[in-house]
Write a protein that binds this DNA or RNA. Structure first.
Lengths: 195, 195
DNA sequence: TTGACTAGACCGACTAGTTGGTCTAGTCTG
DNA sequence: CAGACTAGACCAACTAGTCGGTCTAGTCAA
């Protein structure tokens, strides 16, 4: 993924627009205007709106992943402490990361049935996130001295479910506390499991 | 809400289309064709696409609410048993209810920032659902002989978060087990709280 | 150093088709 | 007959995508 200055401007603009209005409601003209780039340049930078979408997902994921998985919590030695500090860290960064919505969910819901290329790309990105989360939640999983049947994979999926669900409700109610509450409930859940 | 035959055909068609593609990607022409109704009839039945959307949300909610809150679980006397049976009932009906997606989430994410009328209508419908859920989850809330700090309102919100989040992931992965797993985890959670 | 040459980033008017919505000429039904 | 309802041609605005052409920075022989 080598990205030119023009491509980056277009990606930034389309990210903003698609977070707020979704994919089909965001027009190429609008993206160009917001990016300060001509229509010709758009189609020099990307083969189509769909290609922009695919690259955008990758770019969005890459940027988000860093903000999610890089943080002071990584310095903690004790895996359980690290796990709990991770949830706090994501909670604190959540408004910056998803305050405008989540692109994976937006495009996922809008294009799941109509655009298999984009749907499978999103599925892959969710799986990648799930994998990273798994290693973090390991201390709360069964077979680590805990008396429960929950696997780290289950926990990773529950985390993503909680995240995406709370973003939906938070955006509809315009109330970000819903997301924070989600993270804190999840943290309590992890604490109980890893008692 | 007195609904004519033509309106109902249009509502059914637009529901199907908007569940699979969302609001902006669903065109009026398409709705008319699927409903077997002419454009003239559409604009006799509804003032605009937006008005259709608003009525559709109400209609969708009303239909869904019945399937969610009417069931054999209602006959159970013990509130705790009733609560647990409710979750099983919704789990069983979940594919029929949300297998194609959830209209509240679809329109919510797509129109939250651009159409305040629709956004606030969706918020109200979510609040209504939350209210109904609250009374059901009361047996697991604090102050009912349980030693926890969770209110019935918290539980109702957690339920909706889990539901909407798992629908997002299930549609992206084309794997409905994600939703079922969500319900069963939630049931375990309720059991633990009301233990 | 100069001036011919080139690659490719960039431009914006243009096209063919689609959009939500309107309008008129009808057809049923009470 | 009257008023509710239907049909589908029609409209202006907008859609994704195209196309001929410009501009800039670099290369290279003389």
């Amino acid at each position: 993924m080598n990205i030119t200055k023009t491509q980056e401007k277009l990606l930034q603009a389309s990210m903003d627009l698609m977070l707020s209005k979704g994919y089909p409601a965001t027009t190429v003209d609008e993206i160009c205007e917001k990016a300060g780039v001509s229509k010709g340049s758009f189609y020099h930078a990307f083969a189509s709106k769909e290609e922009l979408g695919l690259v955008l997902l990758e770019w969005y994921h890459q940027g988000g992943r860093e903000k999610i998985f890089d943080g002071p919590f990584n310095k903690l030695k004790d895996p359980r402490q690290k796990m709990l500090a991770f949830v706090d860290h994501v909670d604190k960064s959540s408004k910056e990361l998803w305050g405008g919505g989540c692109l994976l969910a937006n495009l996922g819901l809008e294009l799941a049935e109509t655009n298999p290329k984009i749907r499978t790309r999103i599925a892959k990105l969710f799986k990648k996130l799930e994998g990273r989360l798994e290693t973090i939640f390991e201390p709360a999983a069964s077979g680590n001295g805990n008396e429960n049947q929950t696997t780290a994979k289950d926990l990773a999926q529950q985390f993503l479910v909680m995240l995406e669900g709370s973003i939906v409700l938070a955006r509809v109610h315009k109330d970000w506390k819903i997301v924070s509450r989600g993270f804190q409930n999840f943290k309590n859940h992890l604490e109980a499991l890893s008692g």
